[in-house]
Design a protein around this nucleic acid. Structure first.
Lengths: 330, 330
DNA sequence: TTGTAAGCGTTATCAA
DNA sequence: TTGATAACGCTTACAA
């Protein structure tokens, strides 16, 4: 910038004024400065700019589990779309379900002095954010709630959605319904399994422990778990509820060799309607979770100081075929 | 930081030393400073830190078309994974195939003084980056080449891949092969259509202009285009080559009402093997494009000053069924 | 309308 | 081992 000022024969302040379209600069001077900017190939340093003005960084942080999971990438796309409308950049970090990586990544974003944070948490203790919160950092938790701090949250109605899904299977006549799920310690999965139990209990159907195949971290593990769920010698499940898109993909693998088993999955996914049979799902709009969370965050950044809110997004059943397969005759 | 220094009764310089684990600080003093940091809830300002040291920002920029497209989110996941290994954050921007948004976003990232850029370009003129390049900004173009500037590039072997895909259809006996593609002005699609023409010409099969359904921007448009390709009254195509995963998804929609048409798609996608028939594809590893591009970029950041290189990643045919459907008897 | 100078929160250089 | 102090590149009172 000094070079520009020298080139144009003006003071730094004048260059700054021209760069910021500040009023009260002689058009001729401004023109001279602009030519100098061209000549020197000058690009202003956003970093320094923001430092001095103590202004917002026009950046928000986003933490997701894994961009390779379509649920998380759709959520990220939603956040990014809203951020772009607010002329704000998004720094994305992923933590792969590891709470310590979550903490490092989130605190790293705070040190970068982002204006706010959208967090899909992996851990179950967020008290490490208390200082940041007290210092005025804005944050919204999405998909899963925050533990130990009071912040805005945007989540799905997991328990009700799961209940609807399982009730749908019960309505088709199933009584022996298995669940394929990730670790139940993950809030969403825990809630969805609870919804399953709700539905079973309400129908007077016993929810046997051995029908809950939990702890599957990947589609491959889900496939394997499904296979053993379906090859039990007694009280074999005739229908399955899968608690997210990863579990559904895994279960579908196992079903290729065990057709005739009904399936309802949590999370819609591309091509669900092209499979044989098409897959009935309880929709869970990741893009909407992302846009909603980002909108809540920008409202906070703009000065909203109300009590933290929890926003709940409801999914609905999308009937396609796999969930309407009746149980075999006994 | 002043507060911390006051609290601990030391100078700012000492606080800085402790924060950076610099040698030559009395353990007792260090301890006192650390307690003061605790007490004041101090978090250092990464922005200011980097300003002074003129050091790298430990941030790279990534521009993609659309995070909602699994190809781009997988690519982003690859970049992010490598960046994390280098303790570097990733600022993601998406431009949705709009060259002017690309330019604004990329220049915005430069102003932020990122250490480098991974760009999936939308436009076909990148001379606007000349100044940045001259100023030492490191950048790698991925999936599509840069135009007007000499920079590192990581691309797929599109033309050869497309040729392989179409040769596979020719080998199954097809002569009337249609192409469903996005705008041919997009380099990847242009190359893939060229590969199609190569294969057809080599086989002595006429590549009729009306078999090239171009300009489809979405799966919905691709579906519509496929439908009209298959309902022509004369010289109807008996096989299809789709030039990316979006086109394939669209074409599959149309094929539900026109079974028996062979299909090979460019880009593998989840569940391709679960469809009926399973979809034969030419793989195009987006995650690998991302990791490779990021590795090239970090090598540059680390000081590699060789001539810009083009790295070409090869895909291969994954035979699953849809591409082996023979043409109907005439 | 323009220039001078202080300061943003750090780090780095020197001297003590 | 510690402390003053200049500097990073910019913005912004305030003065001219």
């Amino acid at each position: 910038m000094r070079d520009v000022a020298a080139e144009a024969g003006v003071a730094l302040a004048t260059v700054s004024r021209v760069l910021n379209d500040a009023p009260g600069v002689h058009p001729e001077t401004a023109e001279r400065v602009r030519r100098a900017v061209e000549a020197t190939g000058f690009r202003r340093n956003e970093i320094a700019r923001r430092l001095r003005s103590g202004r917002e960084t026009a950046t928000i942080g986003l933490l997701v589990e894994d961009l390779g999971n379509p649920f998380h990438s759709a959520l990220a796309a939603g956040v990014e779309a809203v951020a772009r409308r607010h002329s704000t950049s998004v720094v994305i970090a992923s933590c792969g379900e590891d709470p310590s990586v979550e903490q490092d990544a989130v605190l790293g974003l705070c040190e970068r002095r982002v204006d706010g944070l959208v967090v899909v948490p992996a851990g179950d203790d967020h008290t490490y954010l208390r200082d940041e919160l007290a210092a005025g950092m804005q944050m919204v938790f999405v998909d899963r709630p925050a533990v130990g701090i009071a912040v805005d949250e945007v989540v799905s109605d997991n328990r009700r959605g799961a209940r609807l899904a399982v009730e749908h299977l019960l309505a088709a006549g199933h009584r022996r319904i298995g669940v394929v799920t990730d670790r139940e310690s993950i809030w969403t999965h825990g809630e969805r399994v609870a919804g399953y139990r709700d539905a079973m209990a309400a129908a007077g159907a016993p929810a046997r422990a051995e029908w809950v195949a939990a702890g599957n971290r990947t589609p491959a593990e889900a496939e394997e778990a499904t296979r053993s769920l379906l090859t039990r010698t007694e009280a074999t499940a005739t229908a399955l509820f899968t608690t997210n898109n990863r579990m559904t993909v895994g279960a579908l693998g196992a079903l290729r060799t065990s057709p005739g088993v009904a399936l309802v999955g949590f999370d819609d996914f591309e091509l669900a309607d092209r499979l044989t049979p098409p897959v009935t799902v309880l929709t869970n709009d990741a893009y909407a979770l992302g846009t909603t969370a980002a909108e809540v965050l920008f409202a906070r950044i703009a000065g909203d100081r109300r009590q933290p809110q929890r926003t709940v997004l409801r999914g609905s059943l999308r009937v396609r075929g796999s969930g309407e397969i009746p149980p075999p005759e006994e």
